[in-house]
């Protein structure tokens, strides 16, 4: 038996949130399972990350090693749905999650897949305090679940190296988002358990922009992501009313390229 994890003081981790996702952990990797919506969402966010990295660092988006040599952190990595593809594209990946169950699931799957990912049961604040820095920080579908967004974003932006990138994906705080993400996603389509999201934790783009600016980061790209029920797939769109993603950079030069 492992010792129970003691919550760190001033942690941004919301215990209730961790419990909810831990309950989902066993089905992370089943595309027809409860996380099916994330699997369907994955190609569009992978493409956004890959293409932005290719432009920013002058890489080839089609050579299968677009992230070669980049040190990458996936904060709130869950079962590793983003970590494994990033590692296959050549990144040196650290996957961090506050849920020991998620980390355990991610490790098991990593070993089956035969890819290299350094999974850590850790929080953004913990990694930042330890002095970790990265060329790319992925902050995908996490900010709407943390208890203190300012503290969390300060830790995340602090770990981005000068010239590096941070990707943030989240849900806008609009009436449409309430209708689609909560009523639609949790109650009608049952993609996610009820209570997965709280509307008042959703983040408006201008709030995100301010949180990034406070960490000396400016937005390079932003895009909405919408669901097409006929094709049962997600695609990028100018409509940022519900799901959206941004890429931000910290000015300065990086020694990778």
């Amino acid at each position: 038996m492992k010792e129970p994890v003691q919550p760190a003081p001033a942690s941004t981790v919301d215990e209730a949130e961790i419990q909810r996702f831990s309950a989902l952990a066993d089905t992370w990797w089943d595309p027809q399972g409860k996380m099916g919506v994330l699997h369907k969402f994955n190609p569009v966010r992978l493409a956004f990350i890959r293409d932005t990295v290719a432009r920013h660092f002058g890489r080839d988006p089609a050579d299968g090693e677009t992230l070669k040599g980049l040190r990458l952190l996936d904060i709130g990595c869950g079962g590793g749905l983003l970590c494994e593809p990033m590692a296959r594209l050549g990144a040196d990946v650290v996957g961090a999650d506050a849920s020991p169950t998620n980390i355990e699931v991610a490790r098991i799957h990593r070993d089956r897949s035969g890819v290299a990912v350094d999974y850590r049961e850790a929080t953004a604040e913990g990694l930042a305090e330890a002095g970790e820095t990265f060329d790319v920080v992925l902050n995908m579908e996490v900010i709407e679940h943390v208890a203190d967004t300012e503290l969390f974003m300060r830790a995340c932006t602090g770990m981005v190296r000068p010239g590096g990138l941070m990707f943030v994906a989240t849900i806008n705080r609009t009436a449409k988002a309430f209708a689609l993400a909560i009523v639609g996603g949790e109650y009608v389509l049952r993609w996610l358990p009820r209570g997965t999201h709280s509307w008042n934790k959703f983040v408006r783009p201008e709030e995100l922009s301010a949180l990034l600016a406070a960490g000396d980061m400016r937005i390079l790209e932003e895009t909405g992501v919408i669901y097409n029920p006929l094709a049962d797939s997600w695609r990028t769109s100018r409509d940022m009313d519900v799901n959206y993603m941004v890429a931000a950079t910290k000015d300065g030069t990086t020694d990778v390229g």
């Binding site: 595309p31 027809q32 677009t66 593809p85 296959r88 897949s113």
Partner: peptide, 19 residues
Amino acid sequence: AARLGQDIGGLDVLERYQR
């Protein structure tokens, strides 16, 4: 899928072919 770093034998990838 290979350009995205996805597992080319995974069901989520193959499902696209089937559809």
